[in-house]
């Protein structure tokens, strides 16, 4: 049974979308931009980064577009002073949380976090930097994990589980101490479930997961490959 068509408004414009689609999907299909960071098309959305928050008329709270299904007659606002203010703080907090020394990063210039910050006109953050002491896992022969640059979007966790089916990655610890870990907190190089497919590296929005041997600015991620792979899988299924 084909999905029912629903009418919703995004930023005042009337559009139609399929029942079951999230606000983010409906917006994308209709060429409306909503900033995202943890979302990657095809992966299970988790609503963690809170950048895709939108206003929905009649609801006081801010709604994550990536996990909220559309409802008929819904009216969504994707840009407002309130939204920009809150999205900006989310980005600022990511920068102070860990050590994103962009100038020395393999993903400098190709980083989703960095380009969102620039797009939002951020030239400084108002909070004090944490400068935590974090490790780098260089044990894998081809890839590396640099916790300094991880924003805990869990794209790696999901791509490994949803697409590769290997479940190498998981999040460990709580709160500010939360980290990405491979297997049962073993070194990545010692992981027996890792298939070395590299999907996690491609899915990673920053320089946290990268190919070894890249110099500054050399690591360009192919997130589109991941999405199209998922699409083709879905067609096959």
């Amino acid at each position: 049974m084909p999905n029912k068509k629903l009418s919703i408004r995004i930023d005042g414009e009337l559009i139609s979308a399929l029942e079951g689609q999230t606000i983010l999907q409906a917006a994308k299909v209709n060429g409306k931009y909503i900033p995202t960071l943890c979302d990657l098309e095809g992966l299970t959305p988790v609503g963690a980064c809170r950048l895709c928050i939108v206003e929905v008329s009649g609801i006081d709270r801010l709604i994550p577009a990536c996990t909220t299904p559309i409802q008929d007659g819904m009216s969504v606002t994707t840009t407002s002073a309130r939204l920009t203010h809150n999205r900006r703080i989310s980005l600022e907090l990511l920068f102070v949380e860990r050590n994103h020394v962009c100038a020395a990063c393999v993903s400098n210039g190709h980083c989703e976090l960095q380009s969102l910050a620039s797009a939002m006109g951020i030239s400084t953050v108002r909070f004090a930097y944490n400068y935590p002491k974090l490790g780098v896992d260089l044990s894998h022969p081809r890839f590396l994990l640099d916790h300094n640059r991880c924003i805990l979007c869990t794209r790696c966790v999901r791509v490994c589980a949803d697409l590769e089916g290997a479940h190498v990655w998981e999040m460990t610890s709580r709160g500010i101490h939360a980290r990405i870990m491979s297997d049962l907190n073993q070194r990545w190089g010692d992981s027996r479930s890792c298939t070395n497919c590299g999907k996690c590296v491609q899915a990673c929005p920053t320089g946290a997961l990268a190919e070894k041997g890249c110099a500054v600015e050399e690591m360009v991620k192919r997130t589109d490959n991941i999405s199209s792979l998922i699409q083709r899988r879905e067609v096959q299924a």
């Binding site: 920068f95 994103h100 962009c102 400098n108 210039g109 980083c111 976090l113 960095q114 380009s115 910050a117 620039s118 006109g121 951020i122 030239s123």
Partner: peptide, 10 residues
């Protein structure tokens, strides 16, 4: 003016 528009941050 804030010059950020022209540069990348971070």
């Amino acid at each position: 003016r804030e010059a950020a528009l022209a540069v990348k941050f971070g």
